[in-house]
């Protein structure tokens, strides 16, 4: 009896909701919001769970102990030093290129642009083979360099070359966008005020684009730090010489899991910091541009 009355009441409420367009809209909105919230939670959970597991499976005292492991020390030192050299090289070589592509038109610009972006979508293993074919002992350039007594493949230099190859598009693309965002009238104003192109570049364009360039450089640094495929193919996996952090994680997984977890944690922390810094700098850059 009660059940029947409840059913009747429920049916009445449902029919009221369906018939009343305002209530109907309200319910639809709530259902939609709840659905979206659930979807968001699932996605966030999917990303957060592996990162959290890494933290939970890594007791702090074990991390501190593992930090003294020679394999960790060597990998950390090599990764940081090669990534720093790579970033400086990419900035020095990429900045003029990004500026030229942002400001000037020239024959074959589209091809040049595509070529710059190619390493982003190229599978890392393919990049490794390509580098070997170019700079390896039997490679097109490497063959001649070998004749001069210079060997590149399987050295620390090979690590840097592989990192430059895969990380340069991250900097060049960001730098180009930053230069494009600098109003051309600023450049023109500087020149009518007596500044040469070089003076204008260093005193007007570069400071305005600076935040964007820094975030591009940080992205390139982070990409270098995480580089694995091209490095193992082109530089090999020798502790202290070519074994960077990702390679050390790969090696340690076959033996000491604590070392692998410790290195993975360091990489996660660096990646998180990179995202925070890049986001802050990019937001500042767009605020400046908007003003």
């Amino acid at each position: 009896m009660i059940s029947n009355r409840f059913k009747t009441d429920a049916a009445r409420v449902c029919s009221e909701i369906i018939q009343n367009p305002r209530l109907n809209g309200l319910w639809r909105g709530k259902v939609l919001k709840a659905g979206l919230a659930l979807l968001m939670l699932l996605t966030m959970g999917f990303i957060a769970l592996p990162v959290a597991s890494l933290l939970l499976k890594n007791p702090l005292d074990t991390v501190v102990q593992t930090l003294h492991d020679p394999m960790v020390v060597d990998a950390l030192r090599l990764s940081l030093s090669t990534s720093a050299v790579t970033t400086v090289t990419v900035v020095l070589l990429g900045t003029p290129l990004a500026y030229i592509n942002a400001r000037f038109r020239y024959p074959g610009k589209e091809i040049a642009d595509s070529l710059i972006d190619l390493p982003v979508i190229m599978p890392p293993a393919v990049a490794g083979i390509a580098l070997l074919m170019a700079f390896g002992r039997m490679g097109i350039v490497g063959h001649y360099m070998d004749g001069l007594g210079i060997s590149i493949a399987f050295t620390t230099l090979a690590v840097i070359i592989a990192q430059i190859f895969v990380s340069s598009p991250f900097y060049i693309r960001q730098a180009r966008t930053s230069f494009e965002d600098v109003d051309i009238s600023m450049e023109n104003a500087a020149r009518t005020l007596g500044a040469s192109r070089i003076y204008t570049f260093f005193h007007v364009i570069l400071p305005i684009a600076f935040n964007g360039l820094v975030s591009g450089a940080i992205m390139a640094f982070a990409r270098s730090l995480g580089e694995f495929g091209a490095t193992i193919m082109f530089a090999g996996n020798f502790q202290g010489r070519t074994q960077t952090m990702p390679l050390a994680i790969y090696t340690a997984m076959q033996g000491d899991l604590d070392v692998a977890l410790c290195l993975a944690l360091i990489l996660v922390i660096i990646s998180f910091l990179v995202i925070v810094i890049v986001k802050t700098l990019t937001r500042r850059m767009y605020e400046n541009v908007r003003n």
Partner: peptide
Amino acid sequence: MIPEERNIGYVFQSYALFPH
């Protein structure tokens, strides 16, 4: 003659002040 040698005072429509 290049712009920097012409000695012309130019006020741009957007003023083009250097924001930094």
